[in-house]
Design a binder for these strands. Structure first.
Length: 636
RNA sequence: GCGCCCUUAGCUCAGUGGAUAGAGCAACAGGCUACGAACCUGUAGGUCGGGGGUUCGAAUCCCUCAGGGCGCGCCA
């Protein structure tokens, strides 16, 4: 509808002699200035050599002939303010669909934690960002596949394996027994910091680590056997942790499979044949296979070392080639984790594949949710992969880059993780054991939420109280992680993060719970989707007090902006856009709630209009919260 | 040295060319016998890091300087 009106503006201006231009529209600061405004006359004043007000009058006249326009005003120095036929606008926005979504799978790769220790708050940001982004894409009509890359043969796992063998004197059976513990990942967290310190301080450390790493990569015992036990047990723990906050995965592609299935060997041939890499005959990188790139310091990036082993970047190139279907090799898959409710996560294997395995990968577009520290590496990989595609427009791999989570010195001190030096942010480090574990943080939130629920709902059965507290804790956590822009470093303060008031998840949930309660009181079911407006909506609105009409309209217009907000979030690759929409919606609703009676309103027309607005708000708000992974409890 | 990100109210952040720069927290003053106060209303708080430029119009775009964070290996 906006597009049609913009076209009217453009056409009118061009007919008046203006060169072609793109029309901008905006929403006026107050609804008594209209529903839509065009500042076009200012820019046209110069080219048409006429005063802006005069041009605005011409544009207004053209617009006023459109059926979707009720009234047009020229305001101030030359704004064209449009009062829409609101019923028509609502009906059109309800009819919006995902008709023109291109086919093809979007892979969202997120979380990707090294399977050697418990997940921490930094990983929660990644998972919340990736999961919300994936839900938004699915809402917009895309087919989605969720992957979490699992580096089960890297130094981090090797270090923990070394810790078990060297510092604990454990064999595979011992480790298998320990891995059965409920929070095996916590045990590994502590062992990892211990072994990291040992490697740093003991001269035997570095060579021992080297031995463990090579053992893992080559499949030598005891390293490989223990490595598999550790990696799979910890990866399973990660799935359980993330499932607590509503984050699930389809696939766990493992580095070990990439090695065993010789992905790199094939990728190497393809890259070499395409001329994307070449052997360096001179200089510092003599004997290596390198890629020419402006990104690297000397103009070349080593992909294969002079000792014929492949770098991290090389392995990542092979993996990303597989994701895009550019590698004519495939993983084999086995069932790994059954989620309550039926879905399951698959893990890659180089062994025999299970009979009824679906096929994965070959995505149209892959989104890598990886923190900003990896920007450089991701650019190099993207360049390599792009050199294999015929597409000239843009890369089919996207780096959804985000800034990390650090800790306030106060939080570090409060948790006994070290002394607070200065007032800067403290980096979360798994190696040093500085960080807040994801499960611990969620448990702390759960504890605080449970207190609140008990205080407010003393008569609720304990089991229900627990369920409500969980929803609130998850809502608080999910909102916390997406409420700021992905580019903003989060300096995590525990006290602040445990707050359940103000701009927090529970605020968003509370608005939904309230709205649902009102509807329940007057015997209306929870709306499945936004309802259609009442007949003669504009006339009904006009009969109300102007202030109320404005409040009703602002609530409705905001709620109906869900799809637009989701699309903007997808385009900017940042769920924060949607989180802001949800927060502002809750604010509008709470204001409305305090101002107007709904269920108890005696006037039937007023009650119907207000109920309609509440139903629309609730349907849209619940949908928006679902996209952010924020559950809505029955009561709170 | 090069690259990316950040700099807006005391604090944490919104606001990616339009009308008077907005929220939350903290502070102060109010509001529960109404659909539940995890809420709402009000007060106070801003040279949008500094300086140039483009534009009818700049927190927003360009240049430059400053401060802060993170990267830039034949490591993973």
């Amino acid at each position: 509808m906006f597009a049609a009106l913009e076209e009217v503006i453009r056409e009118t201006a061009v007919n008046a002699g203006a060169p072609d231009f793109s029309v901008v529209s905006e929403i006026p600061p107050s609804p008594d200035q209209g529903d839509l405004a065009f500042p076009a006359a200012f820019a046209l004043a110069r080219t048409l050599r006429r005063p802006p007000r005069e041009i605005a009058e011409t544009l207004a006249e053209a617009l006023s002939e459109r059926p979707e326009v009720r009234r047009v005003e020229v305001a101030g120095p030359g704004y064209v303010n449009v009062f829409l036929n609101r019923e028509m606008w609502i009906r059109e926005s309800l009819a919006g669909t995902n008709a023109d979504v291109p086919d093809g799978i979007h892979v969202v790769e997120h979380t990707s934690i090294n399977p050697n220790k418990a997940a921490h708050i930094g990983h929660l940001r990644n998972a919340a960002l990736g999961d919300s982004f994936a839900r938004i894409l699915r809402f917009l009509g895309h087919r989605i596949e969720i992957q979490t890359y699992t580096d089960d043969t890297g130094v981090q796992v090797a270090d923990v394996v070394l810790g078990f063998v060297r510092l604990r004197g454990a064999d595979a059976e011992d480790v298998r027994r320990l891995a059965g513990q409920p929070r095996f990942d916590y045990l590994c967290w502590d062992l990892y910091t211990e072994v990291s310190r040992w490697i740093e301080e003991d001269p035997e450390g570095p060579p021992a680590r080297q031995q463990a790493l090579h053992g893992l990569e080559r499949g030598e015992e005891p390293w490989a056997g223990i490595g598999t036990i550790v990696a799979r047990a910890v990866a399973r723990r990660h799935l359980e942790t993330m499932d607590r906050i509503g984050v699930r995965y389809d696939l766990l592609p493992c580095e070990k499979s990439i090695l065993r299935l010789h992905f790199w060997e094939r990728a190497f041939e393809l890259l070499r044949d395409a001329g994307a890499i070449r052997r360096s005959d001179s200089g510092r990188n003599r004997g290596c296979w390198v890629m020419d790139t402006d990104l690297a310091q000397d103009g070349e990036k080593v992909i294969v070392r002079s000792n014929a082993t492949v770098t991290y970047v090389g392995k990542d190139i092979a993996y990303q080639m597989w994701q895009l279907g550019l590698l004519d090799r495939d993983f084999r898959w086995r069932r790994f984790h059954e989620y309550p409710g039926g879905s399951r996560a698959w893990i890659s294997t180089s062994g025999p594949e299970e009979p009824d395995t679906p096929s994965f990968g070959s995505a149209a577009l892959v989104h890598h949710v990886i923190d900003a520290r990896q920007s450089y590496t991701q650019q190099v990989v993207q360049q390599a992969v792009a050199s294999l595609t015929s597409e000239t427009d843009r890369s089919r791999t996207r780096h959804l880059s985000y800034e990390m989570v650090a800790l306030t010195p106060g939080t570090v001190a409060a948790l006994g993780l070290g002394s607070a030096a200065g007032d800067g942010a403290v980096e979360v480090s798994g190696r040093k054991g500085v960080g807040i574990k994801a499960d611990d943080f969620l448990d702390a939130l759960l504890g605080r939420a449970a207190e609140e629920v008990a205080a407010r709902n003393p008569n609720l059965p304990a089991e229900e109280r627990q369920a409500v507290a969980l929803a609130i804790a998850v809502g608080a956590l999910r909102y916390l992680m997406v409420r700021v822009t992905k580019n903003q470093l989060i300096v995590f303060d525990l006290e602040e993060a445990l707050s359940l008031e103000g701009a927090t998840g529970p605020y968003l949930q509370y608005a939904a719970v309230r709205a649902a309660k009102i509807l329940a009181r007057i015997g209306r079911a929870l709306p499945e989707g936004p309802p259609h407006p009442p007949q003669d909506f504009d006339d009904l609105l006009a009969e109300r007090d102007p202030e109320e009409a404005a409040d009703l309209w602002i609530l409705l217009r905001g709620a109906l902006g869900l799809r637009e907000a989701a699309a903007a979030a997808a385009a900017s690759e940042d769920p924060q856009v949607l989180a802001r929409w949800a927060y502002e919606g809750a604010q509008r609703f709470n204001g409305f709630y305090h101002r107007y009676r709904i269920a108890g309103e005696p006037d039937a027309t007023a009650r119907a209009l207000r109920t309609y607005a509440v139903e629309t708000f609730l349907a849209q708000h619940r949908q928006g919260l679902a996209l952010l992974g924020i559950p809505v409890p029955e009561r709170m």
